[in-house]
């Protein structure tokens, strides 16, 4: 068991494995993304209240969900890095930050474009929108910290502490619509409840969620491979790996 975990801490093993898995994830993601777009934009009917504007949900919800998921991955791997000094965990956290920031930006941007026609405003300082904006700043802060500190090890540790502490914001984002009065509506899909969405609309939404998830893992693996190469370029295994 420990040997098995140990292999996932070994850069050559992870480098080769991710090189093999990434293309598969990429192709699967592309297929699902195109299917989801077709079902969501063409096949799914208009909403009884919001007409066609609700279709923004097919990019908004997957991006918002991923913005939180990626942050949790970043925080957990940062904690692993801080406690066990595992270099690979730091690479994963560093690779996740720009991807998470993009998902957060997409969630805010698409939400704004949805809010204008439906709510009547691009932006309102309610608990959900504000905490999601804070998430974007956490991602940007993490990236900025890493770039601002010259000493790489110190930069990694400082940024990791920010990532770990910032995880407090995640439950706030999730429960903001229940804890406070907000303009934002409560979640459509919850674990314990039956989703309050018609199956013809729910199916493309779920497909898009899976596609976004695959896109993250694909992108993560590619970026982790670059991270490994950058840090291990002096290692003998890299030279050997690149020869063939």
């Amino acid at each position: 068991m420990f040997k098995w975990i140990h292999r996932f801490g070994s850069p050559p093993f992870v480098y080769r494995l991710s090189g093999r898995i990434a293309p598969v994830l990429g192709v699967l993601c592309l297929i699902l993304m195109l299917t989801g777009l077709y079902l969501g934009l063409v096949v799914a009917p208009a909403d009884y209240e919001q007409g066609d504007s609700y279709r923004i949900i097919f990019v908004h919800v997957p991006a918002a969900w991923m913005s939180m998921f990626v942050y949790v991955v970043m925080a957990v791997s940062s904690a692993i890095f801080l406690i066990w000094k595992m270099k690979l965990a730091d690479i994963v956290a560093q690779a996740s930050a720009p991807i998470g920031a993009s998902f957060t930006f997409i969630a805010l941007m698409s939400g704004s474009l949805w809010g204008k026609p439906m709510w009547g405003t691009w932006w309102v300082w309610d608990a959900r929108l504000t905490s999601e904006l804070l998430l974007l700043f956490l991602y940007l802060g993490y990236i900025a910290l890493r770039n601002a500190i010259e000493h790489p090890q110190l930069a990694a540790r400082t940024a990791a502490i920010l990532a770990v502490v910032g995880v407090v914001n995640i439950p706030i984002i999730h429960f903001s619509v229940d804890w406070w009065n907000t303009l934002h509506q409560p979640a459509t899909i919850t674990k314990f409840d039956k989703p309050s969405m018609h199956p013809s609309m729910l199916k493309p939404l779920l497909i898009m969620v899976v596609a976004f998830q695959l896109l993250y893992f694909y992108n993560l693996l590619v970026r982790v491979r670059s991270g490994i190469l950058q840090r291990e370029k002096r290692a003998a295994w890299v030279a050997k790996e690149l020869e063939n």
Partner: peptide, 15 residues
Amino acid sequence: MGGYALYVWPAFFIT
């Protein structure tokens, strides 16, 4: 897009 083209398409395009 039922009159919402100005909102739906930019959202998908920028995404």
